[in-house]
Amino acid sequence: MTAATPALVVDDDMAARQRRTRLSRLAQYGFLALLFAFMATPMLVVVVFSFDANRFPAIPWGGFSLKWHRAVLEDGMIADAFLNSLKVGFGTAVISTVLGFAAAYIDYRWRFRGQSAFVLLVAMPPAVPVTILGMAMLAFLSRIGLFGTVEAIMACHVVLATSFAMALIRLRLGELGPEVEQAAWNLGASPSVAVLLIVVPFCKPALIASFFLSAAVSFDEFMIAWFVGGVHETLPVRILNLLQGQVNPKINAIGTLVLVVSITLVLLAQRFMRVRTGQPTATA
């Protein structure tokens, strides 16, 4: 590797190749940096300009100010929307984690006819465009009289979030050898006791991760919430409605709030469920 003897032609060749390699590495890192800059730019813009004294976000910066953040705190509609988002997010997180665990455990534990249809039914919702899903849910829920409530938004968010919860928990269950449960049965535990005392504790990190991820999915979702919520707005729906109106300098401040909450939720989920890329065994 060290460029020691310059006399030989072979070494010249190698030096040239090394230079090419170094250049190509530099290009690769540069490209990656640009890509991350592209993803970070919108988030940074929202956060930075939420502290801008100017009414319209523009350069040059109008100086540091907390007035838009204060205005958000004093806005009753935003407070209501935030409260709705919290209710929907918490409910979704709890129910999705429970349902996701049930679905994952059933898929892990039993072989039955219609198993792939069952898994597909739970896994598929995120693959359906939310515009279509929202419209369908609105049409159906208004028929059965559930339209326009916070509970309706929650019920629909559970459909989306359970898919992610099942995936995370199923991944964890894949690491639980069948002999552990067998041992529990041999020692006299009934199957349900074994689930409660062995399987649930084993899945704890994945359950916590599912809780936070489901909350994040719900907190971020606005199309379905917009369709089925009626007059009940969640925070992202409030933003959607604000965006369709006049330019509103409060949007940056609400956006910062939404960003902080949702990124915190996702990071918490990741903290409990490390996604590993190193080992090929983790691809299941």
Binding site: M39, F56, D220, I239, L243, V266, Q270
Partner: peptide, 29 residues
């Protein structure tokens, strides 16, 4: 890098689109 990629998948798409509006608009950043 993976953590940084997962975060935007689940967070505030609509806020980020609004930010691009601010960046790209005629008198924007």
């Amino acid at each position: 890098a993976v953590a940084a990629l997962v975060a935007p998948v689940f967070s505030s798409y609509i806020v980020r689109i609004y930010a691009w509006q601010v960046v790209l608009s005629p008198q924007g950043i």
